[in-house]
Each structure stands twice: as C-alpha cells, then as structure tokens.
Simulated scan of single mutants.
Amino acid sequence: MPPNHDRRVLVTGLQGFTGHHLANELEDNGYEVWGLGDVTPTFARCVKADLLDIASLKQAVLAAKPHYVIHLAGVAFVGHGQPKAFYDVNLVGTRNLLEALEPVAADLRCVLLASSANVYGNLQGGLLSESNPVNPANDYAVSKLAMEYMAKLWLPKIPVVLARPFNYTGIGQSESFLIPKIVSHFVRKQSAIELGNMDVWREFNDVRDVAHAYRKLIEAAPIGQTVNVCSSNLVSLKEALALATELTGHSIEARINPQFVRANEVLKLGGDTTRLKQFVPDWQPRRLRETLAWMLDAAS
C-alpha cells in the first residue's frame, strides 16, 4: 500500500528483530515508516540518533515530524551481563526520547512504549491482568517498570500508551532466546540440547501478531493506558520440544545445564487478554505450532 504522509510513524529499534516485522505490518497498512537509531542507508527513511544523546534525538525527531511513535529500542535480553545498561538505555534513553518529542507534541496522536510482562515478576497461578501487582525479579524488569512510572510523568503533554508484551518469537530472533535456539538445534539435527529450568510455562507468541497489536494500539490510542500484549496460551518448555519433534520427525535429548538456570526465574507467565481485546477486537493470535512451522521452514 502506498505510504500516507499523514500517517508518519517513527520506530526506534526498526532494524531489530521486532522492528523488521513491525515495518512490514505498518507499510502493508499504508503508514510512512521512519526508523530512528543506528540505521543504515538501506532503509529509505531513517534518522540516525543515540538514545543517550539528547541533541541527536531532538534533531532526528524534527527531521521525521512523526504523527505516531513506537519505541522498541532497548536492552532486551534478561541474561544480559551488564545490569547498568538496562537502566541507561531502557530508562534514561526513553526519558530522553520523550523530552525530544515534546517540541512536536501537538502533532503526536500516540506514542507507544514497549515495556515487558517481566514487570509482574514471579507470580503463580492464573493469568495476569494489568491490575495485578507488579513485583520485578531482575534488573531488566526493574528498568522496564521504572520506565513505565517515568513515562507517566509526561502525561498529558505526550500521548503515551504502555504495552507489556509477553514472550514472543519468530524469524530473525537471536539464538540467545529459547525458541530460536530450539529451532536451530532441530534444523541441524543435533543429538542433544542444553537448556535451563525445564519446568517453566510461557506464552510463545508470534512476532507478527505482536506487530499487528502494536499497529492497532496506536490507531486506538488509549492514552495513559497500560495494555498486555498476550494470548493467554501458556506452553511448557517440554511441550515446545515435543512440538518441534512432531514437526521435524527428529528427536533431541534435553539436558539441564545449571549455568542456564536463572536466579529468580519466573516460573509461570501468562497474560489476560481482556483489555487488549477492547482495543484490538480482531485479536486471534497464532498458536506456537504455526509459529514453529514458519521458523523451521525458513531455517531449513
């Protein structure tokens, strides 16, 4: 669909895993997509800026003149080895972005900030709604929760919406994440795989569905709201391995490596979709089997 210049969206982290799929979703629906960050000239519309350099951010925002912003950039892997980076990028970087957006606030319709379901922490039983208490269990989650509180200080000047995505995966995600690691081992027909805690239950949602939800949320623009991006479909690690075995016909021995068992592991993490469906009424997320088949086919 040709881009509509009245629907200009600035995406931070556009060249990352989620950003690639989000760009496809937005462009397919007529948005003029601009990337912000350490972008290359291969993307038609991009502005180079560093989240920790407020001057470069202000220049980038004035160049793009967005109507919408989707902020994906951040340090995203829970096992990242430098905790300070979580706070530098996820908290301070986001604040810098909001400050840079203030001069163009009159033209902004929605600024979606990607937080994380990890802010709920190690809560057992049931599906978590946005009204559940938060109890972050690691520096990554604390940095995201701090970002949420900070962002609300900018209301009503900046039309902020907070999205809390639960686990998701897809083509292009790093093998440091669980499902891409499993896919890689099955494609290479490895005899064994080393994993962490096998008794964890997660949503393994599809990145294409997450991109769809983000687009629908900026269109609905529920300003000031926090919205889970989730499916309520929890799958155990053992079930994920069984699905991969079924799809490939290959069997792998799963071994627990104590080095991969995280302290303060969140054992069960699933979300309540009630609020999301208020703003994305056509929400029908894919099941892990379909996502795995897509990833296995692409990697084969």
Rank of each mutant, 00 (worst) to 15 (best):
D107K: 01
N138Q: 03
S174E: 07
S131Y: 03
N135A: 13
N118T: 09
Q124V: 07
S174N: 12
T169C: 12
Y140G: 09
K181R: 14
P159E: 01
M147Y: 05
V111A: 12
S174Q: 01
L123G: 10
S184L: 08
V183N: 14
V104G: 11
P159H: 01
S174D: 15
V104R: 06
P156Q: 03
L128T: 10
G126V: 00
N122Y: 00
G170Q: 10
M147Q: 15
P103Q: 06
I158W: 00
L162M: 11
T169F: 12
Y149E: 07
A105W: 05
S115C: 07
E175N: 12
S116R: 06
I182D: 12
L127A: 12
V161S: 10
L145C: 08
I158N: 01
F177W: 15
I182W: 04
P165M: 10
L128H: 14
S131E: 13
G172D: 08
I182G: 09
N135C: 07
S116T: 15
R164H: 14
G170P: 10
Y168F: 15
E102D: 12
A141V: 04
Q173N: 11
S131I: 02
S174K: 03
P136A: 04
Y168V: 02
L155I: 09
S176A: 13
P180D: 09
S184N: 15
V111N: 08
S143I: 00
Y168D: 14
N132F: 15
F166L: 08
K181P: 03
A105P: 09
L108R: 00
V104M: 05
K181L: 12
G121M: 05
A141R: 03
L127I: 06
L101E: 05
Q173D: 14
E175I: 03
L145V: 08
M150V: 00
C110D: 11
V142A: 04
G126H: 05
N135H: 08
L127R: 13
P165I: 07
Y140L: 10
I182T: 09
N138R: 01
N138F: 00
Q124I: 12
D107H: 10
L108I: 00
G121L: 02
A151G: 02
P165C: 08
A146I: 00
S115P: 07
Y120P: 07
L128R: 14
L101A: 01
S176Y: 09
S174W: 03
Y168M: 11
S176K: 11
V111K: 05
S131A: 09
L127M: 05
F166C: 03
L123W: 11
K152W: 02
A141T: 03
P136E: 11
L128S: 12
V161H: 11
D107Q: 15
I182A: 12
G126S: 06
E175T: 13
N138W: 04
